Amino acid sequence: MTTIRTIFFGTPSFSVPCLDALTEVATVVGVVCQPDRPVGRGLTLTPPPVKARAMELGIPVVQPTKLRTGAFGAWVRAQAVDVAVVVAYGRILPSDVLAGPRLGCLNVHASILPKYRGAAPIARAVMAGETETGITLMQLDEGMDTGNMIAKFPTPVGENETAGELGERLAKIGADAIRSSFAGYIRGDFLPEKQDDAQATLAPPLKKEEGKIDFTLPARRVHDHVRGVNPWPGAIALLGDKKVKVHATRVSDFSRPGAAPGTVILADKTQVVVATGEGAVELVTVQLEGRKAVRASDWYLGRGVAENDVLA
């Protein structure tokens, strides 16, 4: 067993593959994640995915509610670790925590920095129509993903790939990055690269209201928006007083010149196509409130939608 001692910071399911990878290359003496949260209609107190996995692995878990009291920084120092690995923990670490490990804190960030600094780099990249993103290993400082970069692992973004699908791939790429680069980082094999702040873009957390589809945008942007807010908060349109969740779309070659954005310009047993501000999108999978997700063509066959209906 390696003698490299680490602490792992992470909270959501995205972080779990990286935790697994870290246990293969180091001794993880503790896992830090956010507190349990109430989930579902019953508001059942539920542990985050990283906590659940750490418990399966038999690793002690710490869930601080406050990081800036000094007590947590003292706890980190007491662990006498070589490095901390941070993957989507969800909170900015204060200076005393960053300085606790001998070699500081290594972050696995889900974008090619300096683009998409912040909490939602995957969704924001997809919504922006990026054709490439990736993982950046970086040293944490007190800024928002502003530290020096150690290594980059780019990957293309599929034309119809959702943020959820891309997130699953990036989680695996992040885990492979730890497997391939962690030992070299400890040895000092990498020359840290300063970020160009002038090229930086921000990726703030998504808000629920951002799910609303704006059909006045060009077809490509509508399609990218639907992909970017899948799985959360989900793309939403209104058909009259009915809320329709749109799970998947495609940019369509079909058009009806002069059709107002949001107008259903084609609805038959094979497809449902909606006009946008420029071009049109095919609705592939939709879901009405209280119903299961269905193909849009089945929605038409069930008389849920017809040509000349207007989605807003």
Rank of each mutant, 00 (worst) to 15 (best):
A54F: 08
P35W: 07
P64V: 05
L93G: 01
V31G: 12
V85Q: 13
I92E: 12
G73F: 11
P47I: 10
L43E: 05
G58I: 02
P49G: 09
T69I: 12
V62F: 15
R77V: 09
V86G: 09
P47A: 15
A84N: 01
P101K: 09
A84G: 13
V76K: 05
L98M: 07
R37Q: 14
Q34I: 01
T69G: 15
Q34W: 03
A74M: 08
C105F: 07
V62I: 10
I59Y: 10
L57Y: 15
P60E: 13
F72N: 11
D96L: 03
P35N: 09
V62C: 14
A78M: 11
A74S: 11
A54W: 10
Y89H: 14
G70C: 14
Q79E: 14
A52R: 12
F72R: 10
L45I: 07
T44P: 00
S95F: 08
R53G: 01
E56T: 06
V86E: 13
A84K: 03
R68T: 11
V86A: 15
A54L: 12
G104Q: 05
G70Q: 14
V97H: 05
P64C: 09
G100R: 02
L67R: 06
Q34P: 01
V81K: 04
Q63L: 10
A88M: 06
G73M: 13
T46C: 01
E56R: 13
V85I: 13
T69Q: 15
M55N: 10
L103Y: 12
R53N: 08
V87L: 01
L93Y: 07
R102A: 14
P48I: 04
L57P: 14
G100F: 06
P48F: 04
V32D: 03
L93K: 07
D96V: 00
A71P: 09
P49L: 02
A54M: 12
K66A: 11
K66N: 03
K66M: 08
L67P: 12
C105S: 06
C33H: 04
G58F: 09
A80P: 05
T65G: 15
R91L: 15
T65F: 10
V97N: 05
I59H: 05
G42I: 00
G42Y: 01
A71V: 11
G42H: 06
A74L: 11
P94Q: 07
G70E: 11
Q34S: 03
V61P: 03
G58Q: 03
K66C: 04
F72S: 08
C33K: 03
R68N: 14
A74N: 05
M55V: 10
G40Q: 00
R41G: 04
W75F: 14
C105D: 06
